[in-house]
């Protein structure tokens, strides 16, 4: 953080009433927060209400924003010529991301939906990557079991699928 810069904090309030205070610059990773602040709201003591996102999920999102803001600020302060250090820092952040997102699937779902609503592109991307990784190499029925999704195809749709792609039906039922 550059010296002399005033420290501005914002408060995010979850749907279940929990408050999280963080640096405004960190919160600005969210397009939704950005828009709110741009129209001159959200800086007051009441904070920014975040609908549909509970405290437990929001706390994770805040951890992510803080980490990525700190990493970006540190990178700005670094000697631009020091490529090796930059690469090392990037690698470190990627490792942190991977650990951070190594979550049980319901939490992953919550964070993906939250990041999507808040417009935090990096976090959406990270969640999508992790979620896709969970589905790679799995048949439709394996995915259904894992995520508790019901097979809701009509018999006509099944017939169509069988016609389009006969090789998979044996795998999916």
């Amino acid at each position: 953080m550059a010296a002399g810069k005033p420290v501005v904090m914002v408060t995010l309030v979850s749907s279940d009433g929990q408050s999280f205070q963080l640096l405004e610059e960190a919160a600005l990773l969210s397009a939704m927060v950005r828009d709110t602040i741009q129209i001159g709201q959200g800086r007051g003591p009441a904070g920014i209400p975040i609908r549909n996102i509970t405290g437990q999920t929001l706390s994770m999102v805040v951890v992510y924003c803080n980490k990525h803001y700190t990493a970006a600020a540190a990178a700005d302060g670094d000697d631009a010529a020091d490529e090796e250090k930059k690469v090392a820092n990037k690698k470190q952040l990627r490792e942190w991301d991977e650990q951070f997102i190594n979550l049980e699937q319901d939490k992953l779902y919550d964070i993906l939906v939250a990041a999507n609503n808040l417009g935090i592109d990096g976090l959406v991307d990270l969640c999508c990557w992790r979620f896709a990784d969970m589905m790679k190499g799995k048949s439709a029925s394996e995915i259904r079991v894992k995520l508790g999704i019901r097979d809701d195809f009509t018999s006509e749709q099944r017939a169509q699928i069988e016609k389009d792609s006969p090789w998979v039906w044996s795998r999916t039922t």
Partner: peptide
């Protein structure tokens, strides 16, 4: 799940994974 989020997930799968798995779930 929100369709844009699901789009993002599908976008990270390769064609075979969508055609034999995720694209036939529901």
């Amino acid at each position: 799940m929100p369709s844009d989020a699901l789009s993002g997930v599908f976008g990270k799968l390769n064609a075979s994974d969508i055609l034999t798995g995720a694209g036939l779930v529901c």
